[in-house]
Amino acid sequence: MQSLTQEQVIMIVARQFDDPGVTIDADSSMDNVADWDSLVHLGILVSLDVELEGRAAAVKKLAACRSVKEIVSCLAEHQLLTQ
């Protein structure tokens, strides 16, 4: 996949959580989703790279993203987001 939509980013983040009670939306972040910790974030980074066919690995700023908004913005900066 050349790029992702915001909805796809949300789905990628959501599927990292085993708990069906966890709801992810455009405003979700490490600050308001209790289980979104550094371990979960590693899973998000891997999934982004898989979905983007290896293009996410070079986007170093993704490591520091703490929210869906930041991930979306970071991908957009690198032309990896479809509006």
């Binding site: 550094s38 980074l45 070079a58 520091a64």
Partner: peptide, 12 residues
């Protein structure tokens, strides 16, 4: 250790 940063470095 900043796990996410180190991880991204290794992947790249």
């Amino acid at each position: 250790m900043n796990g996410s940063e180190v991880f991204m470095f290794t992947m790249d």
